[in-house]
Write a protein that binds this DNA or RNA. Sequence first.
DNA 1: GGTCACCTAAACACGC
DNA 2: GGCGTGTTTAGGTGAC
Length: 388
Amino acid sequence: MESDTHTLPPLPTSLLCPTTLYQSPPFSSLLRTSSTVHVSLPLSPLSISPCPTWLSPTAPASIHLKTESLSPLLDSLSPPQFLDGQNLHCLNSPTTSDQDDLTCLNWLHQRGNLLPLQPLPKTTPLPQLEPQDPIPTQHHLPSPSKPPYSFSSLIFMAIDYSPDKRLPVKGIYEWILNSFPYYRAAPGGWRNSVRHNLSLSKSFRRIHRDKNQSVGKGSLWCVCPEYRPALLEVLRKTQYYHSTNSNLLNKPALLEGADYGVSMVCDTVAISDSLSQTLLLSSPSPPALTSDNPPLSSNPPCHLTPDHEELVNMEAVEYEEEVGEEMEKDPLSDSGYIEFHYYQYHQYQYLVLPGDTELDLETVEILQLDAEAQEAAGSLLDLAGGGH
DNA sequence: GGTCACCTAAACACGC
DNA sequence: GGCGTGTTTAGGTGAC
């Protein structure tokens, strides 16, 4: 399999999301092979690969883009513009994890226990990149920006993620620290704010520990069930708000999809009448591409991770070969569908496309924002499903 | 301009 | 007494 790699020039600033520092991963490189096109996307910190209960862990969360909105985009795909004049850049063997389901909160366990946190790139690092340094490293990355979530949302996520749906204050601290590196460098006042929110907000309830429980101080905190929908709504609005502030205003179909689209829980949706193509975002699971495992299209969705960590190791050659085989097996491949696969390697996410698929920058940007929509959809899945 | 939500800081009490 | 935790008050900011 022949493979060419290309490094794209910095994205125009206009393509970056100005108001959402946790969004708009700069598009930095592209690797094209005979069967796949790898689009390197820096990890989106806002996107939440974890799969807490408010992100339905079982429901596929593929993003479905409506035909009318993406048709022009797909119609405007222009390979020469996309690839011409790019500097060559070789990506180190992207590998994938064997069983990593990025839609599952397990990644948090991995991150918290196994992987060091890395600073999050802000919105605008790419234009500052030098040509000789096509892939930004954390050395060049600015410190992570403040998450858009309120403390109530952070606490809610922390508690809801916990296995027992209850956490001590210290556990909430740790979850926030592990999930949002911003707070690692932030002054300690945020802890006070967490405690303040716990005490003041009716959404959280204190559970006294057993007296014979000698480990730890203080009480456990849980989410009041009656306030859970409200918390979910706040969370959804936060995500929605930042999505709409991320160049999505002029992409109503994406907004619809990100908002409440029932299609979010489906696997595929046709998006282009002219090209008869469907964008399918699915999880990375290259090693799982065996006869014993489901095809890519049926894998759980891939949520981008909130901060930019190396969650998985990937074996590039095997992956590409298997992807190629799987693409042929995939019924979607014969039905005019285009299947996209996210996986991640170091601080990048890779979008794997069929070999004859070409994307322009605008489409790539949409796919980036798609991850936000996916996340927003996750919350809505729970709402739609009535919670758990 | 008023209201609301949210953030931040500070003070204090309590228990380990 | 130190520290972490929990509560309360107050002021500021921004969105609606």
